[in-house]
Structures are given as structure tokens and as C-alpha cells.
């Protein structure tokens, strides 16, 4: 009686997605490289770093914020700063219209060579003001308004006027939309999701999980 649902569930997983368990490590790395070909990339770390994590995230998603505050910070301290790892960040528009605005802002900040600062500032804003205290009501509200994003951009010393103009740039929005296509192709079902060694990881897993997977690439 108890085993029946378990068998059904496992069967669902086995049948719902094609297994790629026979692929070698090399082909997985190749797969990760080709999946990066989606136009302008937002990269945290040295482009020449050997290990790659592709991150699909929404600036408004609390779990994405949790990853940034915990495993993300540790990965950056221990691998990115050592030039061993680069994180390819693909912002998504999943939760609300302001998610899309913040995602577009990431490309605008990149134009001014301040992507990493912007990335950290937006996640920190959401964390400190809402999610740290487990206030998830913000997910339902338009919190990352143009004015809030402008304040954030001022805080990281961006040219605010050109940043504001850029927020309405359709080509940036197209870039965000192409991330969604890329996510679907990779088999991503929510945020945050990561592609490491060609494997999709759902959820903000602990640092040690990512560490094990990054070490396999080095």
C-alpha cells in the first residue's frame, strides 16, 4: 500500500525526463559550454575560470536570495576569487513584473561594468528589507520599482540617468526573455536552478553540494 505511491513517483521521474546518465563528464562540460551561447552573458568571476555554474535566478525569489547569502557567498570566496570558478548568471522574470525590471537592470549595469555590484545590491536589498525576516508578502507586491532600482544604482555609483533610460530598452528585455528559453531547454522548472556539469540542480542547495560538483570540474 505504502510502496505503491513511491513506485509511481519514481516511475514518473524516470519516464518524465530522458535520462542522460550514460553521458561522460566531458560531454557534460561541452553541454554546459554550448548552453552559454544565449547572447550577452552576465558573469561573476574570470571568464577563463575552469569550472562553470550556470545560475537561473529571479531577483525577487526568496530562495535565490538565500542562495546568494549562503552558498553563493562561500563559492565566491573560495572558488571565484581564486579564479577557479565563474558563475554565469541568467536573470529570469518569474515572480512579477518587477522581476523583469530588475533583470533588465542587470544588463544595464553590465553596460556600465557594474554587474556584480548591481547583482549583490539588489539581492541584499530584498534580503535585508523582506526575506531575512521571512516576510514573503513582498513577492506579491511591486517592490523593485524604477525608483528603488534607481536608488540602488546610485548606491553603486552607476550613471543613474542612462541606467533609467536603459530600463526601457527592448533589446535588454529580449535578452531576459531569451534566458527563459534557455532555461526551458535546460530543463529548468523553477528558480533558483543551476546547471553544473550538464546537470540541473533545483533549489538553493547547501555550499557543500556545489563544492562537490565544482571540484569534479577542476
Amino acid at each position: 500500500m505504502l510502496l505503491a505511491p513511491a513506485v509511481l513517483l519514481i516511475g514518473f521521474f524516470v519516464l518524465s525526463e530522458p535520462s542522460n546518465s550514460t553521458k561522460s563528464l566531458d560531454s557534460r562540460n561541452d553541454e554546459a559550454k554550448t548552453s552559454e551561447d544565449v547572447g550577452q552573458e552576465l558573469i561573476i568571476g574570470e571568464t577563463s575560470a575552469r569550472a562553470v555554474i550556470v545560475e537561473y535566478a529571479d531577483f525577487k525569489c526568496p530562495s535565490c536570495g538565500a542562495f546568494h547569502q549562503e552558498a553563493g557567498r562561500e563559492l565566491r570566496a573560495n572558488y571565484v576569487q581564486e579564479n577557479k570558478l565563474k558563475i554565469v548568471f541568467r536573470p529570469m522574470n518569474v515572480i512579477g513584473p518587477d522581476s523583469g525590471r530588475a533583470a533588465v537592470g542587470a544588463y544595464c549595469a553590465t553596460d556600465q561594468s557594474k554587474f556584480v555590484e548591481y547583482h549583490d545590491a539588489v539581492f541584499d536589498f530584498m534580503w535585508e528589507n523582506y526575506y531575512k525576516a521571512q516576510n514573503y508578502q513582498a513577492e506579491f507586491e511591486d517592490v523593485l520599482t524604477e525608483s528603488v532600482l534607481s536608488d540602488i544604482s546610485r548606491g553603486i555609483e552607476l550613471d543613474v540617468a542612462s541606467f533609467k533610460n536603459c530600463l526601457n530598452d527592448d533589446s535588454k528585455l529580449a535578452q531576459v526573455n531569451s534566458n527563459e528559453v534557455s532555461a526551458q531547454n535546460a530543463g529548468v522548472r523553477g528558480t533558483p536552478s543551476f546547471v553544473v556539469n550538464g546537470e540541473v540542480i533545483a533549489g538553493p542547495q547547501p555550499y557543500q553540494v556545489f563544492k562537490s560538483l565544482v571540484d569534479l570540474q577542476l
Partner: peptide, 22 residues
């Protein structure tokens, strides 16, 4: 004897990421 409870918990508990759930 617990089969439906098991199903409920798996469906709900898998929701670790935003919107990522069975």
C-alpha cells in the same frame, strides 16, 4: 495506512525553490 500522507508530503515538501515543486 499512510500512502496518501506520503504522497501529500512528497508533493509539498519538494517545493524547495520558488515555484519548483512537483
Amino acid at each position: 495506512s499512510g500512502g496518501s500522507g506520503f504522497m501529500f508530503a512528497i508533493l509539498g515538501g519538494g517545493c524547495v525553490a520558488c515555484g519548483t515543486s512537483l
